[in-house]
């Protein structure tokens, strides 16, 4: 796999330098090793701070979603590696407006251990914080063991909804409760057509044949449900819809925002081919579609493939999803 880079060990730092240089109106680098991206300007006093964090390699997740109506700060690790406790604590410090902090991120063991530790450290500094974990990948564990599922693209909805609630000057308990409701209402499934390459590893994370695909693969190449011959767009979309609907049954009159997301290399053209089927399936159920998202929202480097996320909405979640938000990658 060919990559454009200088030094694989400087990959993340150089990426962050470029990100801040291109979009200084949104981002500033701070914290231990300059591995925290915070909103440009000082934290807004009296507003709940929302922080996320995790490994690099998923832009716009997590870093890209720092912005008004979204996240306040984000700690960034190496590609697919957890940030350090210090970096997570620094992200929380950068987001601290005196009204408490929500830690909102994906359910991965190393991230959870480090973020909990960072929360304990901030507690010593008299900063209160809460945690909401995204665990939306239906392929990663059965419904009965939902707490074991990995967090994937559903976190974009949680960032958006919690971020909008925090902008309304809601208190930490309210922001946390909304974030949890958004997280609980999200289901995602991915399918990969090709691997990605971690720069420091220098070779593809996994091997997959030119004519093969893998259903249910995770965003770091975690094994999925099945691997076999590449299917047609309609068959892929139908199977992914089946998996999501089996996990979160929908009925007539339900409201939902669907996301059809490229894992990196898959072009928007193919996402729109897939979206036809998503629309048809939801229409057939009598489900009302709100603000469909089709594009590159959560990626795995140069992996070819797609993920679907369904986020079920109620009046409040819908209003918060539609509230204004702005970052370099997404404007609502």
């Amino acid at each position: 796999m060919k990559k454009i880079l200088n030094d694989p060990y400087a990959y993340v730092d150089e990426m962050l330098q470029g990100l801040c240089a291109a979009h200084p109106q949104y981002y500033r680098a701070t914290g231990e090793g300059r591995r925290v991206i915070a909103r440009a300007g000082e934290p807004k006093q009296g507003k709940v701070g929302i922080v996320s964090g995790g490994g690099s390699g998923h832009l716009p997740v997590f870093t890209g979603y720092v912005g008004k109506g979204l996240l306040d700060a984000c700690a960034i690790g190496d590609v697919f590696a957890s940030p350090s406790v210090e970096q997570m604590a620094d992200a929380m410090r950068a987001a601290n407006g005196g009204a408490g902090i929500l830690r909102l991120y994906g359910n991965y063991g190393g991230d959870v251990m480090n973020f909990d530790m960072a929360g304990d450290m901030l507690e010593m500094e008299d900063v209160s914080s809460t945690t909401v974990l995204l665990a939306d990948d239906v392929a990663s564990a059965k419904l009965e063991e939902r707490e074991k599922r990995r967090g994937v693209a559903g976190m974009v909805y949680a960032f958006k909804i919690a971020g909008a609630k925090a902008e309304q000057q809601a208190d930490l308990a309210e922001v946390t409760s909304l974030a949890q409701r958004a997280a609980d209402n999200c289901r995602s499934i991915g399918a990969a057509l090709s691997s990605c390459t971690v720069p420091q590893a220098g070779k593809p994370t996994f091997e997959i044949g030119d004519d093969e695909m893998e259903m249910g693969m995770g965003i770091h190449g975690e094994p999925g449900i099945w691997r076999g011959g590449l299917k047609s767009a309609d068959d892929i979309a139908n199977e992914m819809c089946d998996l999501l609907l089996a996990d979160m049954p929908l009925s007539r009159g339900d409201r939902l925002s669907p996301m059809v997301n490229s894992l990196g290399a898959t072009p928007p053209e193919e996402l729109y081919i897939l979206y036809r089927t998503v629309k048809a399936r939801l229409d057939a159920l009598g489900v009302e579609i709100v603000m469909p998202l089709v594009g590159r929202y959560a990626t795995s480097m140069e992996m070819a493939g797609v993920s679907f996320t369904f986020c079920k909405l109620d009046d409040e979640l819908e209003a918060l999803l539609k509230a204004p938000a702005e970052c370099a990658f997404w404007t609502v």
Partner: peptide, 14 residues
């Protein structure tokens, strides 16, 4: 915690 990468370091820190 700065000895990142080691779960033993994180546990001691805890």
């Amino acid at each position: 915690t700065k000895t990142s990468g080691s779960s033993y370091g994180t546990l001691l820190a805890t």
